[in-house]
Write a protein that binds this DNA or RNA. Structure first.
Lengths: 210, 210
DNA sequence: TCGTTTTCTGACCGTATGGTCAATCTTGAG
DNA sequence: CTCAAGATTGACCATACGGTCAGAAAACGA
């Protein structure tokens, strides 16, 4: 947090409206998919006239791209947990915690990202090929170092990463299914804690880092 | 397989066209989502005029529902691996194998299912509340029995099931991301085998059933 | 062969969508 | 206070979409 900037009213309005629109868009894109989402619906949810959306975001694609970029940003930051960890139990444990928290707090964004990738990543393919690839290679190296140091079993780092992504994102992307199987009620604080605990316990023991 | 039925030409044509349409629809729905898919695109991919689609499937929703039902059927059958298994290593190992094979052979169907659930299961909510709920409770009981028999660690059966679903489906739903991280090439036979092996090794060891 | 049922399809329709625009209102610097 | 720049919005447009339908063609039973 920087000190509260002295904003002109114009800047404040612009900032506020962009936030309003992006927030509404995230929800609508998550619930209806890119094709099923309509600018009208997003406008209604944001409480603004449709034409106003097009003033801030020229096209539906541009708005969508911004939504995807935002979640990707959050997603990458969770990686900080990974770095500077002395051992896999600490690093991977913290990463699981961070990603589970993201699944709980940004379920819409998670779904938008999942949807985007599932449809072949038409708008963020470049991110996958650059940022994500670098990120993945970096963490794979960390894992390999842990393996070489005898701190965990020799597992394929990529498949371990896929498992981490899959398991943690599942609680966001398939949240509706989980909720239904939970008697139609969202997971309670206690249940979320249990979920985290289960995931960490199984994976950390599974890679010999418990 | 029953013996080759003597089909009238009419029946053969109907069967053939329905197959053609369902197959094209599965692909288009997977790639574009329900909202992004168009009857025209499905028709083109099936090599039939659009009006012909509406002869076999009255509405887009009806066609979509059939596609979702088909994958759900396949999905449930993978559960057979679970039953009559003497111990978790056998049962869960076979289940992972089966679900990984489904991810490889029916990536489109997997994506359609994932998309449907992510969007709140608008058309198959009843399945979730009946068939899937029963299925889940049944397997949870099996897992609890294994735990009681001391064949594996006392883990929450639901979270274990979620982990199994998440991890195996990830290879279909996020196949594009995995492919990109694999240098743009699909996983080879060898890599698929390694993926299966990694998943099984980590999870089975993680639940103390290795 | 004949009449009936099923299959096929081009042309068409109402609607909803993404996007545009000109007119109006608001803000802020000088 | 003045006025240029920014923000707002109702009305509008072209297009694309799901779906319809009437009539032609093919398949079939008798």
């Amino acid at each position: 947090m920087t000190a509260p900037e002295r904003l002109s009213k114009r800047d404040a309005i612009r900032r506020e409206n962009e936030r309003l629109i992006l927030s509404a868009a995230e929800k609508v894109f998550a619930e209806a998919g890119f094709g099923g989402a309509t600018m009208q619906l997003i406008a209604d949810m944001a409480g603004l006239p449709k034409a106003n959306l097009h003033y801030y975001f020229a096209t539906k694609e541009e708005l969508y791209r911004r939504v995807v970029q935002e979640i990707f940003e959050i997603w990458l930051h969770a990686a900080d947990s990974f770095d500077n960890a002395p051992d896999p139990a600490t690093g991977i444990g913290a990463y699981i915690d961070a990603k589970m928290d993201i699944s709980r707090r940004h379920p819409h964004g998670s779904k938008v990202w999942a949807s985007e990738v599932m449809h072949g990543a038409p708008v963020i393919q470049d991110y996958l090929e650059t940022t994500l690839r670098d990120w993945t290679e970096g963490r794979a190296k960390v894992i390999e170092a842990w393996i070489d140091a005898g701190l965990m079993d020799p597992v394929d780092p990529r498949h371990l990463l896929y498992m981490l992504w899959a398991t943690t994102q599942h609680y966001a992307d398939f949240g509706h299914q989980i909720e239904t199987l939970n008697g139609g009620r969202p997971l309670s604080d206690r249940q979320w804690a249990a979920a985290k605990q289960s995931v960490k316990a199984i994976i950390l023991k599974g890679i010999g880092a418990a």
